[in-house]
Design a protein around this nucleic acid. Sequence first.
DNA 1: ACCTGAACACCGTTCAAGT
DNA 2: ACCTGAACACCGTTCAAGT
Lengths: 206, 206
Amino acid sequence: MPRPSKPRLSKDKIHRAALELVDRDQDFTMPQLAARLGVSPSSLYHHVKGGRAEIIDGLRARIGGQTRHLLHETGASWDDRVRQWARAYHAALSRHPFLIPVLVGESVDDTPTLDLYEDLATVLREAGLRGEDLVLGLSLVDVWVLGAAVDAASPEPLWDTDPEKHPVLHDAVRSVSTGRAARTFELGLDAVISELRSVLERSGRP
Amino acid sequence: MPRPSKPRLSKDKIHRAALELVDRDQDFTMPQLAARLGVSPSSLYHHVKGGRAEIIDGLRARIGGQTRHLLHETGASWDDRVRQWARAYHAALSRHPFLIPVLVGESVDDTPTLDLYEDLATVLREAGLRGEDLVLGLSLVDVWVLGAAVDAASPEPLWDTDPEKHPVLHDAVRSVSTGRAARTFELGLDAVISELRSVLERSGRP
DNA sequence: ACCTGAACACCGTTCAAGT
DNA sequence: ACCTGAACACCGTTCAAGT
């Protein structure tokens, strides 16, 4: 087949198809992606020269962009703004839970996600955190949101227990309710906010 | 080459070689593993019939076993015991930081790791947590330890910032010191313990 | 510019054949 | 029982060839 008069592919189409595959299969491969787009695998490289790695970067950027779209900064208190930030990011990640394992372990360098972290850094700075405390605050919120997202993407039950060998754990697993991951996220978010508050107090601000 | 008089391979050798590869390359493949053991890829399947997935399971079990080996339960208070548990698991995971992305997203069913979580469940139960609160407590500690381990495995700097576009974030990144991940872990651990304490108080125990 | 098919160097896994 | 080589169905990526 020759070159079509209108391009069949675009970055946006590629990203959307990749997300659909991740949502369905927990992962995507280049041939699968090409098949879904009715195109040959090599065609993909005309639109995304960095290949698979660049596509993953694009997906991360999409999540970052969606998160910022959810963020309507009101004049609320710093802790409410941190809560909003964490919930928005968590919500955006939760729409594609299987994406998190794919994203994990790579350094962030796309503009939307960096913009997102700039937002958080600004809130924490306005709250009064500086220097190393600011970095620790960022890390604290970041680790919690990403950790909770990985947790949300994990299969339930988390633990495959035998009542004989692990009675206490087994009993706990039995009383798991729907929304466990969501409630864990909220509980930990409370914990993180409290800790930020005590860091602020320690550094001498109310 | 025929069958040797003494087996060249064993589960233990395979696991150790796989860990070495993960430590060096952040991952392992069956051919790489075979080459390192001086053997053909197909040989591996005589010792580990579940293939790559079973090897990964074995690595998780090793970490679980090592963690329990670090745990010498003293008659300390529940919060000290939770701290010990989290630090031991964190330490075991930190010895092989690149292993975490490999482990993530699979349900736990090996005995050593289940034993480990049974330990934690027992401590939390003795502290007074029951039913759903116990599950939330387990999740809280679990998410934090694994999230912090992923964080520790991430490349520094976490964010590739341009001072023009992301001034606050850039400034924060500049003041990152060595041990950032370790200090984040400790700070979050404090937060988790405090939150567990307030859950206990809410449910009516001192 | 955009798509194709062929090619390359990889994967994980199976299996008959050897001892 | 334990190791081998060949084979299968996959990967991601490159590249000359087409329009």
